[in-house]
């Protein structure tokens, strides 16, 4: 199976890519890791006239620490994130998450920017960005703007990206002492996408949970933060009983989409299980 014809444009800098994007307009698609786009091209579900390849832009690969934030370039591969000492030391759950995506070869090509720009409702990163209180940097010819993860994921395959914009960086606040986070994924055995993925970040102060952030992927058309679970745990003692009680509220106010592999009831149940596991692990990391 081969894609329909298109013209290929290899960008060598962000400015280069933005220039191409400006001149080619909505006839063009951005090629990042390609692990969602190229299969879609092959099946001819997508037939862009132009592809702008970001793989030859070194600046988008970098992973650095700046002012208490970990700054991950949009074209950092999952393998790069998984094996980055910077990521592992400051937001270890992000490194673990990266190591759970797809398979080894997919991780060698797939990128964080590609995943979040595509906004597949089963993808792992979106939940983690929400729980981590990450910021997405969007760059256009007129400059850059920062969008909170909370505002970035709009709908299924839809984000806050405007025309002429690229995702260039993702900023994760480094986890402070006393703060822990975890991503717990229940995978579809065939696609290895998340049936349910839960990301949780908790600060434990004097044995009490604070700044609780819990987000899910896989349950509905987009990743979302679960205020029900968050508020149930906020200010509560960090113990198994409170965590279990909070986890049981998972996805209560959300319309959950089931399928032939995992129906709605099962997904709701697994959401509570993954929430508990993620919260327990986050609290354990916070109090380590």
């Amino acid at each position: 199976m081969l894609p329909a014809s298109f013209d290929y444009h290899r960008a060598t800098s962000v400015a280069d890519a933005l220039g191409m994007l400006g001149s080619l307009g909505d006839e063009a698609k951005i090629l990042a890791g390609g692990h969602s786009l190229i299969p879609a091209l092959k099946l001819r579900l997508s037939k862009p006239a132009h592809l702008i390849d970001l793989n030859a832009i070194p600046e988008l690969r970098s992973i650095t620490r700046q002012n208490g934030h970990i700054v991950v370039g949009a074209m950092a591969t999952h393998t790069a994130v998984q094996t980055s000492d910077i990521v592992r030391s400051a937001v270890p759950f992000i490194a673990d998450l990266a190591g759970s995506i797809g398979d080894a070869s997919v991780r060698n090509r797939g990128t964080i920017g590609g995943v979040i720009a595509h906004a597949d409702p089963r993808a792992d990163y979106p939940a983690a960005l929400l729980a981590a209180d990450a910021t997405v940097v969007l760059t256009s010819k007129s400059g850059s703007r920062n969008v909170k993860a909370d505002d970035f994921f709009v709908d299924m395959f839809t984000t806050a990206l405007a025309e002429g914009e690229l995702v260039t960086e993702i900023h994760f606040p480094a986890l402070a002492k006393g703060t822990g986070a975890s991503y717990q994924k229940f995978s579809h055995p065939a696609s290895r996408y998340a049936i349910v993925g839960c990301a949780a970040r908790v600060t434990v102060e004097g044995g009490v949970c604070k700044n609780v952030r819990v987000a899910f992927t896989g349950l509905t058309e987009k990743a979302f933060r679960d205020n029900g679970v968050e508020s149930a745990l906020e200010g509560k003692p960090a113990n198994e009983a409170t965590i279990q009680a909070a986890a049981l509220l998972a996805a209560k106010s959300i319309e959950v989409t089931g399928d032939s592999f995992a129906d709605e009831a099962y997904r709701r149940h697994i959401a509570t299980v993954q929430a508990r596991k993620a919260l327990l692990a986050a609290v354990a990391a916070a109090t380590k």
Partner: peptide, 10 residues
């Protein structure tokens, strides 16, 4: 890498 998911041009 999975060479089916990469363009030759890349």
């Amino acid at each position: 890498v999975k060479s089916c998911t990469l363009l030759a041009a890349q």
